[in-house]
């Protein structure tokens, strides 16, 4: 059973995220900086409601909300919102919201159609390693989500420049290419150590629970593929100076791999992680 309180808070969060997304779209369509500023605070409100919903769930379940697809999808959206709010506050890139809020809305919308009953925790999931695993995954995936948004903005701005549409309008809302590129690099360097921790803590957990730290099941394998893509990003940048265009594409591809690890593997491939 999902409690009334949690349900109401969650639905309100979905609605307010939707409002934030609409405001970001308006801000971009009408080139209104003000609407973007407002959208930030609306997102903050949605995030607060979202946090409250998960806090209520944590209390009701007597554990952190880590154990099924509904819970983790909601957390995934929450992590992206968290890092987005930080980046938005620190670097004031309003347009980023027009990419990130649909992402959040999509994830949380997907969560809302999944079965949300609080299920007791099965023995294999009772592990501190699992908790660290999930927390690090939220941070890593959140920052990879932001890097994806920045990569898309980079490609959009670049396209406008080559198409001769530079100047005025939407273009004026976009930060410079160099800023986008470096912020993107920043999010990936933040996320990469956490992603490494995701792999390591997952391995330790599997070893404690089943006796094999790595069994090449599709979820593990895709997490490794994701990690390698970002390692390629870092190397290409450091040793061959792959910045800008190609780096932006790699950050987009990296996040597609994150999404596939997350959803594609569950929907298309089978494996041990069948409960998450």
């Amino acid at each position: 059973m999902i409690s009334h309180w949690e349900n109401n808070l969650f639905i309100m969060a979905v609605i307010v995220y939707l409002a934030a997304m609409t405001l970001y779209f308006i801000s971009v369509a009408l080139r209104r900086e003000k609407a973007g500023r407002l959208a930030f605070f609306v997102t903050l409100g949605a995030f607060a409601l979202h946090t409250a919903a998960m806090a209520v769930r944590t209390v009701a379940a007597g554990r952190l909300p880590f154990s099924n697809m509904y819970e983790f999808t909601s957390l995934f959206a929450w992590g992206i919102a968290l890092i987005f709010l930080y980046v938005e506050r620190r670097f004031a890139i309003r347009v980023l919201g027009a990419i990130i809020t649909p992402l959040i809305f999509g994830l949380i919308g997907y969560a809302s159609v999944l079965p949300g009953d609080i299920k007791p925790l099965m023995p294999a999931l009772q592990s501190y390693w699992l908790q660290i695993h999930v927390i690090t995954a939220i941070l890593a995936y959140g920052a990879f989500g932001i890097s994806f948004g920045l990569g898309v903005l980079y490609l959009v701005r670049e396209k406008m420049e080559t198409a001769g549409k530079a100047g005025g309008g939407l273009y004026s809302l976009l930060p410079g290419l160099k800023v986008l590129d470096e912020l993107n690099y920043g999010s990936i360097t933040f996320a990469f150590p956490f992603m490494t921790l995701v792999l390591i803590t997952g391995a330790i957990w599997a070893e404690r629970a089943w006796g094999t730290y790595w069994s090449w099941d599709p979820k593990e394998t895709w997490a490794l593929i994701t990690w390698i893509i970002y390692a390629v990003y870092l190397h290409a940048r450091f040793t061959y100076g792959w910045k800008g265009h190609r780096a932006a594409w790699l950050s987009v591809i990296g996040f597609l791999a994150v999404l596939f690890t997350y959803f594609g593997v569950n929907l298309l491939l089978s494996g041990l992680h069948s409960y998450v």
Binding site: P218, T221, L224, I228, H235, A236, V265
Partner: peptide, 18 residues
């Protein structure tokens, strides 16, 4: 460039393996 190549190959092989 060998190292990048190797990393990409291993990722590609892993895709097949999954």
């Amino acid at each position: 460039r060998l190292n990048l190549f190797l990393l990409i190959i291993i990722a590609g092989v892993s895709v097949f393996g999954s």
